[in-house]
Amino acid sequence: MNYNAFSYDLRKDVADMIYSGKGGHIGGDMSVMEILVTLYFRVMNISPDNFGSTDHDRFILSKGHCIEALYAVLAAKGFFPIDEVKKNYLRFGTEFIGHPNVKIPGIEINGGSLGHGLSVAVGMALAAKMNGSGSRVYVVMGDGELAEGQVWEAAMAASHYHLDNLCAVIDRNRLQISGSTEEVMHQENIARRWSSFGWRVIDVENGNDSDSLYRAFMRAKNNRFRPTVIIAETVKGYGSKIMENKADWHHRVPTEKEYREMISEFQKRKEACWE
């Protein structure tokens, strides 16, 4: 299975949702896609069959505005039909709203307000230890999100409690709504910040490559005594040059022309994955 190629199929699903639902956070959906695909298809033991039991792994999308990418991945995992999402996303009366919502199968916790996810993940990782369960907890945060103080309160607690069953991923796309993260609130030395809080840090230079991410997740699994953070260097809007690295694509809805262009570029790049 070529997971990078597969990610392009899911990018198309996301573009369909956003184009027809007339809203969504396309830039961050595109940067986080390989992270989600790798977790759900290669790393975590979460499926519609075991979801809701006590011993599956746990996942939290703390950058909850990128729910469209998660809808695409959960649909591909068989939690619900993708057509149901495309038909209902953001429509009147739907449960497929613009942020994580526990009414949707496969979602653990409601979200949308940045900075909450890591604390909830710490609680889940503590519970797994208390219950003697082998399940692992994964949480994905945005880089802009790291400005929230709560993230660092949770980071402190995670290393204090030696939560080696906890793995955080930072979608390091270097953009947030108002522009470059470094201009809005700079966070250079991001790796050193985390290691000084007692975390193991794994840098992934190409965070839009599933194999690189997979190797990092395997290393994280073998870490003992400390929580792990994977800093995935990604490209916001990855998949189409019209939106790559462009801040205003944080939540832009493509025009018909842009939509067609991105769909055909996804296809071309997908084919290039096999070469």
């Binding site: 802009g144 999100e145 400005a147 947030q176 709504i177 108002s178 809005v184 609130m185």
Partner: peptide, 24 residues
């Protein structure tokens, strides 16, 4: 990280010294 939704970009550009961005 709210200057766009607050329509405050024009203020930030006109008076950069009287504008403070704190991030999220």
């Amino acid at each position: 990280d709210s200057r766009g939704s607050a329509s405050m970009s024009a203020f930030a550009e006109s008076f950069p010294e009287q504008f403070i961005e704190v991030g999220i």
